[in-house]
Design a binder for these strands. Sequence first.
RNA 1: GUGAGAUUAGCUCAGUUGGUUAGAGCACUGGUUUGUGGUGCCGGGGGUCGCGGGUUCGAAUCCCGUAUCUCACCCCA
Length: 403
Amino acid sequence: MIKSLRGMNDILSEDYERFTYFIDTATKIAQRYGYHFIETPLLEETLLFKRSVGESSDIVGKEMYQFIDKGENDVCLRPEGTAGVVRAFIQKKLDKAGGVHRFFYHGPMFRYERPQKGRLREFHQFGVESFGVDSVYEDATVIMMLADILKCLGIDYKLQLNSLGDKNCMPQYRESLVSFLDSHEDEICQDCKRRKTTNPIRVLDCKNENCQTLYLDAPKLLNNLCRSCEDDFEALKKILQNNDIVYEIDTNLVRGLDYYSKTAFEFVSNDIGSQSAIAGGGRYDRLVEYLDGRPTPAVGFAMGIQRLMELIVMPEETRKGYYIGAMDAGAVDLVVNLAQHKRKTDKVSVEYKAKNLQKHLKSADKANAKFCCIIGSDELKDETIWIKNLENKTENKIDIKDF
RNA sequence: GUGAGAUUAGCUCAGUUGGUUAGAGCACUGGUUUGUGGUGCCGGGGGUCGCGGGUUCGAAUCCCGUAUCUCACCCCA
């Protein structure tokens, strides 16, 4: 038997119901906030991700599905969604056009990782990107939209907030952190020694207990923000408070991708195993110019659909449509004919075999139909059809021509 | 990429110190005087016990390899 590749799953039946319910809900809410759908290719030039996500990240360093195509282009399957959207934004010259552009997207992403609960090699993200607004109100609005989506799906979450500073304060902070790490070189773990050179900020969310105790004395991001970053962060907290969004500050929250600045946030859940992040995002004011566009402020988020799936509270299922069957073999042709007619407007399931009433009612019930419609020998004779409403248990006979 | 555990019917799982034709519940299907469903009764189909080797008179059971899933690390949505 040929099986799907490791970490790549089919989505069907109940999963598909949940999946589309999520997409529909998130789409509806994003549109309320003025976002428009954008579809970008699954395959992009490798350089795009190297320059946006960053070579120091694990995603680019070891998790990309990268290969040389028949035209000898170095390409890879997208490991995340933002880079492609930014590329499209620049390619369509929207950066030069000015104004505000808000996009949402959803689709498969690919990372060559060891799969486990809530982590697949092919997984689906829903995300939004807002271009051209530098106001911190936009950061807050993006967070509130995400909160709206989760609330609408009945998902419990915790929101963690941090500010990563900008080009004025981040490099300075990075330096002071590195010199702090230098002075404790002998005490930090192997991973942190590696991070010190590749991506020093990442030491902050090291899971090692020794490291964490040590870093209590390390310089804090939030204490080293420049004036404008500081003001924005204060404003952000206030806006969220005014709009009843509960959050907690986590000075060690570092996003894994290089392009973030200022606002960084993560929505987490305790109910999905060790992969607790269900959505993450932040501001990335420098990314557009990194990718050769005109400098454009931007903010966005992405959520992992598979991680949300089992948390989604689905609306109660209601009976829908018709079940049509015959109790007399001679009525089957008529029943199929009536079903075709009814299908122009309603969901219909037909039973091709003649059965007794009890069997039909059971099947209709199983099919979750609202009406069970039967033609037996009596009905065949007087050209009527027997209809029972399975919700309120009322039944009646009507002329076939009125069905 | 590293370490640990798991894998038996469509699904959830039993299966004794290795011993005849590997079981249950649910699901599917047929029948139950062909007119009343979501909990009646009786029957039926369905498994190369993940895959490949090995030990043994004999392996679902023990050993080795391998694939996949799960968990932890790493990292992230």
